[in-house]
Design a protein around this nucleic acid. Structure first.
Lengths: 211, 211
DNA sequence: TAGATTGTTAATCGATTAACAATC
DNA sequence: TAGATTGTTAATCGATTAACAATC
């Protein structure tokens, strides 16, 4: 029952379109052509039109695209018209940073609980969100709907934790541990590998021969 | 004086190879063939061989690749044989998380200072690294060698800050602000857009029709 | 209506995979 | 030597760009 199957390259670009359109919206820009947008975003107008046409015709010949409408449609494509219950595994700095990032709520992502093994952290709260003991993780998941689990625990703990989460019914994982999680089909994993990102930066810095 | 110009797709994969080889190294695996590695990494053996051959022949017919040697060579390609002085802009949760991530040091990235505008944070220290006032940022940069500036300030402040950093001589930027920084050629920017990553996750979660 | 700009097809370009000769 | 596996060329596949007819 799947549509044509959108390429990963296109999906990777959607959040960036969404961001630019959001910025335009804030500046009260009403309409924009693929050409204007392409200049701002430094991509080709052709690519923008191709990308959007994967999902249907959002524009109008001779006019361009209505910014508000396109923004909202891309939001829907990205699933931002829905609400997501999020739990964070690991109340270290990164877990806290995620918990404190209020902007996620604006997009429909609600952090409901944070879990940690450290007894000193259990019982504290971050932005009003309780830090719970990992001991009660299973029962929590069985009692509350959770759409996304953000994993910010150490590399060595991450694979087992992820396997448990899946066993207990989670199928959306936002993984910050510097390891790949091999999970069954049907489980969606999105990785944020900060070390990988930093290495890409050092590659480019070290490779420079007076450009 | 540039070599053939390695494609971005290849570079994006290098840190992942490096990670897998590091794991093998820890398990005292001495040699590995492209076929074995391809099975672990879930890519084709052909792709591994093609990728590596962009940089030269690291393997041996009939044998495969020596894990330690290949790990070290990829490290060099990624610039991990060098040391980098890093400053962090913004001592919020994310800035603190980065400052606390000791593992970066193992790869040659040394956080030298953290800057914040908030007078309450100035004077404190994180893992022994002083939080300094943004007022003295310019003079700090002029007096100390800085290779990479990690930007964790709010979106609205980021573009101006980045422009200043570049003006003061920085040309490596690790950007965590949810905005693109338009900087002159020769400046290397690596973006970590957490919100974009989360949207990609919600896209896949919301698009699922019983896979 | 004339001008602008989309939606979409066709052409090009680049990246991935397959195949195999070279060689350890 | 025979077997294994690389390095590399050729074939395929997919993504990007160009072009333009459709149409607002």
């Amino acid at each position: 029952m799947e549509e044509k199957q959108i390429s990963k390259a296109v999906i990777n670009r959607l959040p960036r379109y969404y961001r630019y359109l959001g910025d335009l919206l804030e500046k009260d820009v009403v309409r924009i052509s693929s050409k204007e947008l392409s200049e701002k975003m430094k991509v080709t107008a052709s690519q923008i039109r191709q990308d959007l046409n994967n999902f249907g015709g959002f524009g109008q010949q001779g006019y361009g695209y209505n910014v508000e409408y396109l923004h909202s449609e891309i939001g829907k494509i990205l699933g931002l018209d829905k609400k997501y219950n999020v739990i964070i595994l690991g109340a270290g700095n990164l877990g806290q940073a995620l918990a404190n990032y209020v902007d996620f709520e604006r997009r429909g992502f609600f952090v409901k609980a944070i879990f940690d093994v450290n007894p000193r952290l259990v019982g504290t709260s971050i932005r009003g969100i309780e830090v719970l003991s990992t001991d009660i993780l299973e029962s929590y998941i069985r009692l509350h709907p959770v759409d996304i689990a953000a994993i910010t625990v150490p590399k060595t703990k991450a694979p087992q934790l992820a396997a448990d989460l899946v066993k207990w019914g989670i199928n959306g994982i936002w993984n910050f541990a510097p390891t790949d999680l091999n999970l069954p089909n049907g489980v969606t994993v999105e990785n944020v590998h900060l070390a990988d990102s930093l290495m890409k930066l050092s590659y480019r810095l070290s490779g420079e021969e007076t450009d």
